[in-house]
Write a protein that binds this DNA or RNA. Structure first.
Length: 808
RNA sequence: GCUGGUGUGGCGGAAUGGCAGACGCACAGGACUUAAAAUCCUGAGUUCGCAAGGACGUGUGGGUUCGACUCCCACCACCAGCACCA
């Protein structure tokens, strides 16, 4: 047998798969059940990197496996193309982003083909294709027409480097998601999508979709649900007349007897409303101006120093105690969360504790615990279920008992109601960028904001060669005046188009739906096709998108479901987060990392099957694994052994020597593929091949089954051997079944223990009963000796594994 | 700080509460070879011992159990998410 020429053979099969369109998904297949596997489509930029290899090949293995199992598999690919790389290239080199994407997608898909990925190439598209973004715009119009998109002026995240507004999701950790610059706050008029309304539904998505716990937790954290109470405090003037009221939000209503002041966000409107009663309004204004200058990130990163400003002339009344307490403005109180006002309980909230110390405020302890150094905080006293004190009739009660009673009293008095707050805010949706979907809105001086009709979509992006915002920070589109000036679709008078574009996350928030019907001209996808393909059964991709893209996806799918555009609420049944390939510094391996290894290099040197298997073998799909060439020789040697099976193949059905190893292999590999635990699947292939090589033969039937099992992991070599030996296509084969009765050997070695200490290992027939096993092992000399003169008080038998005699 | 996760040889990593370290790499010895590479065989957790064999071993300390990497409690370290969210 000649050596395995991976270069030639892998190329041959890749060409054949492409020519024969081997992996086309069939809409409405008459007999096969559907299975939808999705890999997070790549950003159209340069070349593929290790992250793509790590992310795609397990999905490919799953897709190939499910086809053998008789499923009609949809495994599509596309391009996330409205994004930074194309725009940056345009700014830097003047290349038209349309061309950049056309070339870039061709390049990256070509490289995917070299990975031997079994995509349905008939369903590809980029988010920047006109007949795709037509429907992204259509979704925006639906959001607008259903009151889920609105424009509002206020302080929003702004990246001074990218010169664009950003959403919270794009500013995680106070850094711009695209360039890493520190995000500042800027006042602008911004389009928002009412994502916050969907908080509960999105939390339900999080619960339902199968995902690793840490991913669910990250999402729950981001949505930030918190149950509490909204309580009304009356505001009085100096002489005690009720002027107004202020609502506060608290999750710790049990501490209400310990309130010694209220803290308001500097932006709180009540201050303006009661301006005339405030004696130090100059001071108040000065404080507000000072805090306005600090960016929100600044305010949040400096948590040590507490600043504030007493509002003189006003006081608040604790509804339960009637105690009059002062009012402060404090910049740690965020205007955008809850009511922008909190009750301060210095003994049970560390921030209030520090504030009270800084401003010499009185403190009242209402829950037992040591308050000499720190406040006794919620997580602490709740865990202990401590007792209340200084709380009138509730004193002495445990929190678990007192808290609901205090809440009930406030509700009865009409000054409190239960309330749920979320950290997640509405999605700030427009960007001052060229390369994005134009927002299909016309601003008419008479009709206001008017959405385009469906017949006028797509609103295409005009060509330009000026990709920078103007000096006011308006989108580059604002400079294309013959595009901007238009007629109002409603009244026909002169109007101007919205010139901002959508964020790069817009197109990715629904793309899995389009794959079900990518060429549809009349709808985002045919409803029956959406129904047929349903939710994505397994969605693989990076974990870095878990609190961005995946949450946006939940949001949009919920909305589309509610307006009847799609038949399912959950976009995905299961979401798997691909681990990272790390470089030798333990950092994410990327193109920019100094010692980044390109998958193309590896393929060139070792072949695709080896590269794929090596990455699988490095570790679990969801684990981060450092890249190393160490160990790749083991895979090379395995592949060579697979090739050499052709030398020892002989005619015949499954032999009695191999029937058990083969059945075990079928079971193990199938289970591992279901869970994408491919490292252990590979280990079991190695064990099997060792066995047949030791025996010096493999029968044709055994080889047939072996090649099918291995094909999802090493598709090229298995296709080639199959064709050579069986003169037919492996893709037409069915996944072999295993038989329970061939999973255990007739005789197994079990360990015999006396008082849990191993004294012997004994071969035992597997068909014996527990009692028979116990007496059989006692025939063994070492066991006999160990039991000599002892009294067996208990015998534990675990068939196939262990016998333990407890003696006295 | 809060939340979630992880902790196993020299390394990557296996183990439904039942023989810890599968499989692979690296390593050592051997075969083949003039030699090397490749290939094949053998060995190997640590430690004491020439050996037979013994002791100790899954981050640390306790517990439950006939039996714990696995379950429970406390602690430590690392990774990730959130972080003045009331």
């Amino acid at each position: 047998m000649e050596e395995y020429n991976f270069k030639e053979i892998e190329k041959k099969w890749q060409a054949r798969w492409e020519k024969e369109e081997a992996f086309k998904a069939v809409d409405f297949h008459p007999t096969k059940p559907k299975f939808y596997v999705l890999y997070e489509f790549p950003n159209i930029s340069g070349n593929i990197h290790m992250g793509h290899l790590k992310g795609t090949i397990p999905a490919d293995a799953l897709a190939r496996y499910k086809r053998f199992k008789g499923y009609n598999v949809l495994f599509p690919i596309g391009g996330d193309a409205f994004g930074l790389p194309a725009e940056n290239a345009a700014i830097k080199t003047g290349i038209d982003p349309h061309d950049f994407v056309a070339n870039g997608s061709k390049n990256i898909w070509g490289q995917f083909k070299k990975l031997g990925l079994s995509f349905d190439w008939d369903r590809t598209f980029c988010t920047s294709d006109e007949d795709y973004y037509k429907w992204t715009q259509w979704i925006f119009v639906q959001l607008f027409n259903h009151g889920k998109a609105y424009k509002k002026t206020g302080y929003v995240n702004f990246c001074p480097n990218c010169k664009t507004t950003l959403s919270n999701e794009d500013s995680q950790g106070g850094k711009c998601d695209r360039c890493g610059s520190t995000v500042i706050q800027k006042e602008r008029s911004v389009w928002f999508l009412k994502m916050k309304e969907y908080s509960e539904k999105m939390l339900e998505n999080v619960d339902r979709v199968k995902m690793a716990e840490h991913l669910k937790e990250a999402q729950r954290n981001w949505i930030g649900r918190s149950e509490g109470m909204q309580v009304t405090f009356n505001l009085l003037d100096e002489s005690g007349n009720v002027l107004d009221k202020v609502e506060i939000f608290t999750t710790c209503v049990e501490t209400i007897y310990g309130v010694t002041f209220l803290s308001l966000a500097p932006e709180n409107k009540i201050v303006d409303k009661l301006k005339n009663y405030i004696q130090n309004f100059d001071e108040v204004e000065e404080y507000r101006e000072k805090t306005a200058l600090r960016s929100e990130f600044d305010r949040m990163s400096d948590t040590k120093t507490k600043t504030g400003c007493l509002v003189k002339g006003l006081q608040a009344v604790n509804p339960l105690t009637s105690a009059k307490v002062p009012l402060y403005l404090a910049d740690f109180v965020l205007a955008g969360y809850g009511t922008g006002a909190v009750m301060a309980v210095p003994t049970h909230d560390q921030r209030d504790f520090e504030f009270a110390k800084a401003f010499n405020m009185p403190i009242i302890q209402v829950i037992e615990g040591d308050i000499s150094e720190h406040a006794v905080e919620k997580y602490e006293y709740l865990a202990k279920d401590s007792r209340l004190m200084n709380s009138a009739e509730f004193s002495g009660m445990k929190i678990s008992e007192g808290k609901p009673k205090i809440a009930e009293k406030l509700i009865k008095m009409g000054v409190g109601e239960k309330k749920i707050n979320y950290k997640m805010t509405d999605w700030s949706f427009n960007r001052q960028r060229y390369w994005g979907e134009p927002i299909p809105i016309v601003n008419c001086p008479h009709c206001g904001a008017v959405a385009l009709d469906e017949k006028d979509l797509p609103l295409t992006l005009p060509k330009t060669n000026d990709y920078l915002p103007n000096e006011n920070g308006d989108s580059p589109l604002s400079k294309v005046s013959d595009w901007v000036n238009c007629k109002c679709p409603k009244c026909g008078r002169d109007a101007k188009r919205e010139t901002d574009t959508m964020p790069n996350w817009a197109g990715s928030s629904w793309y899995w739906l389009r794959y079900t019907d990518p060429h549809n001209k009349n709808a985002l996808a045919d409803f029956d096709k959406l129904k047929y393909w349903g939710s994505v059964d397994c969605y693989t991709g990076g974990t870095e998108h878990i609190t961005r893209h995946v949450l946006y996806s939940f949001f949009w799918q919920n909305f589309l479901y509610e307006i009847g555009a799609v038949p399912t609420r959950d976009p995905f049944v299961k979401k798997m987060g691909s681990g990272l390939i790390l470089d030798d510094q333990g950092k994410k391996m990327s193109k920019s990392s100094t010692n980044g290894v390109s998958p193309l290099e590896v393929i060139d040197k070792y072949g695709t099957d080896v590269a794929r298997m090596h990455v699988h073998f490095l570790g679990g799909y969801e684990d981060n694994t450092p890249w190393t060439f160490d160990g790749i020789s083991g895979i090379v040697s395995f592949i060579n052994k697979v090739w050499a099976l052709q030398d020892i193949v002989k005619d015949g059905d499954v032999s009695k020597e191999h029937i058990i190893p083969l059945n075990k292999l079928i079971k193990k590999v199938g289970e591992d593929l279901e869970e994408l635990r491919l490292n252990t699947a590979i280990a079991s292939f190695m064990i099997f091949i060792k066995k047949v090589r030791d025996d010096g033969f493999i029968t044709k039937e055994e080889l047939r089954q072996f090649l099918i099992l291995l094909n999802p992991i090493a598709p090229h070599i298995t296709s080639e051997i199959f064709e050579r030996v069986f003169d037919s296509q492996i893709l037409d084969q069915k996944w072999p079944d295993y038989d329970e009765k061939y999973l255990t050997e007739a005789v197994v070695q079990i360990a015999v223990q006396v008082n849990s200490k191993i004294v012997a290992r004994v071969d035992v027939e597997t068909n014996l009963s527990n009692d028979e096993i116990a007496s059989k092992v006692q025939e063994n000399e070492s066991v006999k000796n160990a039991l000599l003169g002892k009294n067996i008080v208990k015998t534990i038998v675990v068939p196939g594994r262990i016998v333990n005699f407890i003696v006295k």
